[in-house]
């Protein structure tokens, strides 16, 4: 009886439930961070807890939207969806210095091109090594290594089977999730500690959620720089992979 009432309160106030839940996750993670004397790790731990919860929820419901597939937590889908993500990302541009942007203009563009092409060819080479021989399928998997949107865009355009499209989405999701987890640890090694490096990082990695999560866990001040460049990545990939990418792959095979 009481459980039923609580359930209905939680689900009818979805967005409020989501705020409460995220606050709880962040309280726990900042608590853990403080207890291991690594205060800066707070948001990284919170993101990892979020991913863990998504995994558990996915196993439990069999759905593809993590916690949002559990009825009482459906509001998390709204809070963590692309509408709020983009709205919040844009606001972080407030206070960004124009000089910093100008300094990283050319490196940002170079990083975008190198990022899309290197991810595509790495993905394609791995597809070939693991036994794929059809150029359209190789291109699709390579596209998945760019982002989980580019894979299906290329696959649909080239008419490959839905299994290969699903694989390409999985490759893109691996990239996005892995980026969120390892960026804070690898950041000191690759000197990801200034606006220029953040813009180059955004251009090379490109997956919007991965870059957003990875930079948030590393240093929130760098978020606007990386996010701004990354936002062009999927579009560039969707443009290059099914056209130029496919032509190159088809010439080789």
């Amino acid at each position: 009886m009481v459980i039923k009432i609580i359930k209905s309160i939680l689900s009818s106030n979805g967005l409020v439930t989501a705020f409460g839940l995220v606050a709880l996750i962040m309280m726990v993670s900042y608590g853990i961070a403080a207890s291991i004397k690594q205060k800066r790790m707070g948001s990284a731990i919170a993101i990892i807890i979020g991913l863990l919860l998504a995994y558990v929820a996915g196993k439990f419901t069999g759905g593809s939207k993590g916690l949002a597939d559990i009825e009482v937590f459906a509001g998390v889908g709204l809070l963590g969806g692309s509408m709020f993500r983009d709205y919040a990302i844009i606001s972080t541009a407030y206070g960004v210095k124009v000089e910093n942007l100008k300094k990283a203009g050319i490196p940002g563009v170079v990083a975008l091109l190198v990022g899309v092409l290197s991810s595509f060819f790495i993905g394609a080479i791995i597809a070939v090594l693991l036994g794929y021989t059809d150029p359209a399928e190789i291109t699709t998997i390579g596209g998945g290594a760019v982002t989980f949107i580019v894979g299906p865009v290329a696959g649909t355009a080239l008419g490959v089977s839905s299994e290969v499209i699903a694989l390409s989405i999985a490759a893109g999701v691996v990239k996005s999730v892995l980026t969120m987890i390892i960026t804070p640890f690898i950041a000191p090694i690759i000197k990801l500690d200034n606006p220029t490096a953040a813009m180059i990082y955004g251009g090379l990695i490109g997956t919007t959620s991965g870059v957003a999560g990875g930079l948030a866990a590393t240093d929130a001040k760098l978020v606007p720089y990386g996010a701004m460049v990354a936002t062009f990545y999927t579009g560039l990939g969707s443009l290059l992979v099914p056209s130029l990418g496919f032509i190159i792959i088809r010439t080789i095979f």
């Binding site: 962040m26 807890i49 998504a54 709020f84 693991l130 999985a170 999701v173 999730v177």
Partner: peptide
């Protein structure tokens, strides 16, 4: 922004990422 990113991470298809196979 960071709370939104945490919410975003909790709605990713992590199962698919781990079970997508070797490729």
């Amino acid at each position: 922004y960071i709370p939104v990113v945490v919410a975003m991470s909790s709605i990713q298809n992590v199962v698919a990422a781990f079970e997508g196979g070797l490729v």
